[in-house]
Design a protein around this nucleic acid. Structure first.
Length: 756
DNA sequence: GATTCAACTTAGCATAAAGTTT
DNA sequence: AAACTTTATGCTAAGTTGAATC
């Protein structure tokens, strides 16, 4: 039961626990309700294993499964093995230190494709921005030139293009040509992929020299309901004003969601809805419970049905229109390269739904207008124009930031941005740099660990707290844990904001000494539950920190993220709390891959090993997901398939047997051949069966673990690339198309011997 | 030092698209 | 080709971090 771990608390009279100095004094009252109705949590908690238990059981499972595993030899991957060419390429290290800029390096390759004749990319001046200075003082940072024939050719080409840059027109025409043949299809693939990772990076905070884009795509305007779709108040039909009607439709669309039944949601919604009402409506509509949105709700359901039932042609038309918008607004020109924008559409209005128990759920998320929008672009670019009759809030030219468009959102008052896709240079460089920072930590993590162990003994409380917190961050991959403003967000914590109530100390538990039981809601209100044996000294320190405190007091009362990060900065240049997560995730993947991969395995078995390694990381980082709604059924289906395959195998074996017997009697060529054929069939079926079984195992183990987040954000992609190369696994089995785009740099540069 | 702000990364879920089965 | 399942993508909330301001 989800509320279980709070039940002690809820029995205590909240009124008696007030303490003036407590930030959290009022939390108590609703504690027992916390997450009671959070379906996903319920599901998650149903599986009773703790993190640590899970880790163990995962290990064990692997061992067991390995024993059972069919011993089929690697027979399906040869093709791939032969494929990869032995490029010799050195990596260019990246320690995150900006280098001095020097005048006159060689410029970026002038490669881009251009949507023809829209006048978009015809900026007059950007050529001058071409030259990304390189620095020559630090040999380490030079893009190493690659000596294979292929790359040599490319380098030459690049140089040539460089020279071509001066006469603007020439280059441009080239581009136009390149794009022309791709007019109909979306497969404008003629241009070479730009290898930004072979170029110099900017220094001193400049993010770009030229930026041109078309601005955002606004949400479509509200379309009033047809008059036959009615709204009723207290049983009586009532025609709403357009403003009030729009907000009402937001609610109607969510009617099937459980949260429309929550008090907070309804209260917030109704309050904001009333703001949009005419004064007449305001005086009439005083009770949300008397509002009947059923017809609206039905109408929207019918609409979505109708959308599904559209003819192919209609669907195609929509698809084409979307493609057109993408081509027009989905790209920008940054420093002579056409780059994909991540989120060029402005968030449409609607009702805010935060994660977990969010105090602002149900509030109205305003429609964003051009007047709210700040545009960021080059002075000398063609500025995006606001829709007719409107103005931008501001147009600025700040090349120290990466965003193209921003606006302030009305729920929390935070700023939202339009930025580039992960495949872009600007995101990729940063990502690469992140992993280089984690590798740097690898080099000195022993020293840092020795240091914080030493600090556990410090006579200063703040130092001890800092050291224990750091230990948690390192060992358990906890997040830093900034403090949050109460009442503004859901009550979630990270390391520095842990409260006494989130830990239970067990002198002894299940035969282990000094066990700490963690139970708290982390980012996105995902529950972190883990029982961890810790060192005696840590345990004693925790007892000390918890002494004389109320459950709702901070565990680390002399610590916050700022103090912690300042300390980390002193230990290693560029070190922050989140680097530990990246480091521990990546190193775990590498270790697990080494441990779990067996060269003799076939491709599916190796991929299972990869997924298990990935899973170990996801568990470490507590990346959970709600079990898919159709999980049980899908497991069943798979089992049915497996059973059928087993049948088929038995049949095939029988046939083989009789063919053998037959061949023994007849002793002719024909029957011998028949035996061979049957053997092959058996083999094929065995392999298929094995593949299915592996799939089933993988799926089962993955029931409530999300692999995507770690794969995308924590695992140095070069580890995966190297692993693929080493074991002849096609990269497509590990990374899908988008992921390959994001990690193009790693795929290009990592060799099979790459070590994190 | 605390607080606020800005910029950017990380996160899970809903839904669209793609793939598979009937 | 419809129905169903699985995977990929889009969306946007929720974190972290460092700088600016109080």
């Amino acid at each position: 039961m989800s509320g279980d771990h709070f039940h002690n608390d809820s029995q205590i009279d909240s009124g008696s626990r007030h303490n003036d100095s407590h930030k959290h004094k009022d939390k108590y009252k609703d504690k027992e309700h916390k997450h009671k109705d959070h379906k996903k949590d319920k599901e998650r908690e149903k599986s009773k294993y703790s993190n640590s238990e899970h880790r163990d059981s995962l290990d064990k499972k692997h061992r067991d499964k390995d024993k059972e595993r069919l011993k089929l030899k690697d027979g399906s991957s040869d093709k791939q093995k032969d494929k990869h060419k032995e490029k010799k390429k050195e990596e260019r290290p990246f320690d995150g230190k900006p280098k001095k800029e020097k005048e006159n390096g060689f410029g970026s390759p002038f490669i881009k494709s251009e949507p023809e004749n829209d006048g978009f990319y015809h900026s007059p001046k950007h050529e001058k921005s071409l030259k990304r200075e390189r620095d020559d003082d630090d040999a380490e940072f030079k893009p190493k030139k690659i000596k294979t024939e292929e790359s040599e050719k490319k380098a030459k080409k690049r140089k040539q293009e460089d020279e071509d840059i001066k006469p603007k027109k020439k280059t441009k025409d080239k581009k136009g040509e390149a794009a022309t043949d791709g007019k109909k299809k979306a497969k404008k693939e003629p241009e070479e992929k730009w290898k930004w990772w072979e170029e110099e990076r900017y220094t001193d905070g400049v993010k770009w020299k030229f930026l041109e884009h078309k601005g955002p795509v606004f949400a479509p305007p509200y379309e009033p309901l047809p008059s036959n779709v009615k709204f009723y108040y207290d049983g009586k039909h009532m025609k709403l004003s357009p403003g009030a009607e729009e907000v009402a439709t937001f609610f109607a669309k969510m009617l099937d969601h459980e949260y429309t039944t929550k008090d907070v949601f309804r209260k917030n919604f109704f309050k904001d809805w009333r703001k949009e009402m005419t004064s007449e409506e305001k005086s009439k509509l005083t009770d949300l419970n008397k509002c009947d949105f059923a017809e609206m709700s039905e109408y929207f359901k019918a609409q979505s049905e109708a959308r599904k039932a559209m003819t192919k042609e209609e669907k195609l038309k929509i698809k084409e229109e979307n493609e057109r918008i993408l081509q027009e607004y989905g790209f920008c020109l940054m420093d002579n390269h056409k780059e994909r924008i991540a989120n060029f559409r402005i968030e449409p209005p609607g009702l805010f739904r935060g994660r977990g128990d969010h105090p602002k759920m149900g509030m109205l998320k305003r429609r964003i207008r051009p007047e709210d929008i700040i545009i960021n672009c080059s002075k000398d670019s063609k500025h995006p124009k606001p829709p007719p009759g409107t103005k931008w809030k501001e147009v600025r030219h700040d090349n120290k930031v990466t965003w193209l468009v921003s606006w302030t959102e009305n729920i929390q008052g935070s700023i939202k941005y339009i930025m580039l896709n992960p495949s872009s240079r600007i995101k990729g460089e940063k990502d690469w740099q992140k992993y280089e920072m984690a590798r740097k930590l690898k080099k000195c993590v022993d020293r840092i660990r020795a240091q914080y162990r030493e600090d556990w003994k410090s006579k200063e409380m703040r130092i001890r707290q800092r050291a224990v917190a750091l230990y948690f961050i390192d060992k358990l991959a906890l997040r830093a844990g900034n403090e949050k403003e109460e009442g503004e967000t859901a009550d979630t914590v990270g390391c520095c904001s842990l409260r006494v109530e989130h830990l239970t100390l067990h002198q002894e538990m299940d035969g282990q000494e000094y066990v700490v039981e963690f139970d708290f809601l982390g980012k996105d209100s995902i529950r972190y539950y883990n029982k961890v044996p810790v060192e005696k000294r840590v345990f004693k320190n925790l007892q000390l920190f918890m002494e004389d405190k109320e459950p709702e007091d901070d565990l680390f009362d002399r610590l916050n993220t700022s103090i912690l990060n300042k300390h980390l900065q002193e230990l290693m240049d560029g070190l922050t709390a989140k680097v530990f997560r990246t480091y521990n995730a990546s190193i775990t993947l590498q270790q697990q891959l080494n441990e779990l991969t067996t060269s003799e395995d076939n491709v599916p078995a190796k991929i299972l090993s990869y997924n298990r390694a990935n899973r170990a990381v996801a568990i470490l980082c507590n990346h959970q997901r709600a079990p898919p709604k159709t999980f049980e059924k899908s497991m069943q289906n798979l089992q049915t398939k497996i059973d059928a395959k087993k049948e088929q195998l038995a049949d095939a074996k029988r046939e083989l047997k009789s063919a053998k017997a037959d061949a023994k009697v007849r002793r002719d060529e024909k029957s011998k051949k028949a035996v061979e054929a049957k053997k092959k069939a058996v083999q094929r079926i065995e392999e298929q069966l094995m593949k299915l079984e592996v799939q089933a195992t993988d799926r089962e183990e993955n029931k409530q673990i999300a692999l995507g987040t770690s794969k995308l954000n924590y695992l140095d992609p070069r580890i995966s690339v190297a692993w693929c190369k080493k074991f002849g696994i096609p990269i497509e089995k590990i990374y899908n198309k988008t992921q390959r785009e994001k990690f193009a740099w790693a795929i290009d540069m990592a060799e099979k011997d790459y070590e994190f």
